[in-house]
Design a protein around this nucleic acid. Structure first.
Length: 136
DNA sequence: GCCAACGTTGGC
DNA sequence: GCCAACGTTGGC
């Protein structure tokens, strides 16, 4: 099972929207590298849901419900279905992540415009641990 | 609101 | 195939 992080502007579609709906199609990704990551996903993988914009925090965990599907209209376009897996006990903010040296190499820090990226199991565990611990 | 970083486009 | 101009994204 692989781990990922997927970004979305919550005013457009938030983690809570996903919880309400139960499942959604994750498409509309145009960046080639982000698309490559989408194509590397498998059903059962887990992904952090990151809110961009004002929030800038990881807020929940999703499960990849179905593997990548090619879109009929555009051969390069790709989509996966996702469903909510868990809400984080508290959001883990970008500020917090940037303040920690052990995240310095992660694309979330080094490549702010990338909207779909892999997460190592070490980072995954560390984010989960942080989310269970009160701030400060 | 601004700007840095990056991708895309189109002229050559 | 190169690169300047332009557009987009997302953090600040």
């Amino acid at each position: 099972m692989a781990f990922w992080l997927m970004k979305q502007e919550p005013d457009c579609y938030s983690f809570h929207d996903l919880v309400r709906e139960g499942e959604t199609v994750w498409d509309g990704v145009s960046n080639p590298l982000a698309r490559k990551h989408l194509r590397s996903m498998s059903a059962g993988d887990r992904a952090f849901f990151y809110h961009t914009g004002k929030e800038r925090a990881i807020v929940g965990i999703m499960e990849i419900a179905t593997g990548p599907e090619q879109k009929a209209d555009d051969p390069k376009a790709v989509a996966v279905r996702v469903k909510p897996h868990a809400v984080l006990k508290r959001p883990v903010t970008l500020a917090e992540i940037k303040a920690d040296e052990s995240f310095a190499e992660w694309e979330l820090v080094t490549q702010s415009r990338l909207s779909v990226m892999p997460v190592s199991s070490a980072i995954w565990k560390k984010i989960e641990r942080l989310s269970q611990r009160p701030l400060g």
